[in-house]
């Protein structure tokens, strides 16, 4: 079973993402801010991280993404940035941070599941 980590500071959105993922067989983990999300990622080594960009606290989504991608132990972890920031410069920042996919909020749950399936499909 694939492990998915949701890092999102808004509890309502986190719940919606979790409910969406429960339509499939995933092992789901959750964190409410960047620092605890990064720690959890290092501890559980998820297959995929769904990461909010703008979170309160010391690390935002771009920073968490960069650190996951810079961590050799997490080289197989895919990162999907899930954010309301849709400017070209925001997407460019996501690309620089190394994200595998950039999705805009409000997101389509169906598209989210399809994106996850594509990213986790065996190469």
């Amino acid at each position: 079973m694939h492990k998915i980590l949701i890092v999102e500071d808004q509890p309502d959105i986190r719940t919606l993402v979790r409910v969406t993922l429960e339509f499939e067989d995933f092992e789901i983990h959750e964190a409410g801010d960047g620092v605890s999300g990064l720690k959890l990622a290092e501890a559980i080594r998820p297959d995929l991280v769904l990461l909010d960009v703008m979170m309160q606290g010391e690390l935002d989504g771009y920073q968490v993404c960069s650190r996951i991608k810079a961590n050799g132990a997490l080289h197989q972890t895919k990162v999907v940035l899930l954010t309301a920031r849709g400017q070209a410069s925001d997407r460019e920042m996501g690309r620089k941070a190394g994200c595998d996919q950039y999705m805009l909020k409000p997101f389509s749950p169906l598209e989210l599941i399809e994106t996850i399936d594509q990213l986790l499909a065996p190469a």
């Binding site: 808004q10 309502d12 959105i13 919606l16 909020k105 409000p106 997101f107 389509s108 749950p109």
Partner: peptide, 10 residues
């Protein structure tokens, strides 16, 4: 606003 829009998509 975001929650409402998200609920509609859902």
């Amino acid at each position: 606003e975001l929650d409402l829009a998200q609920a509609k998509r859902y």
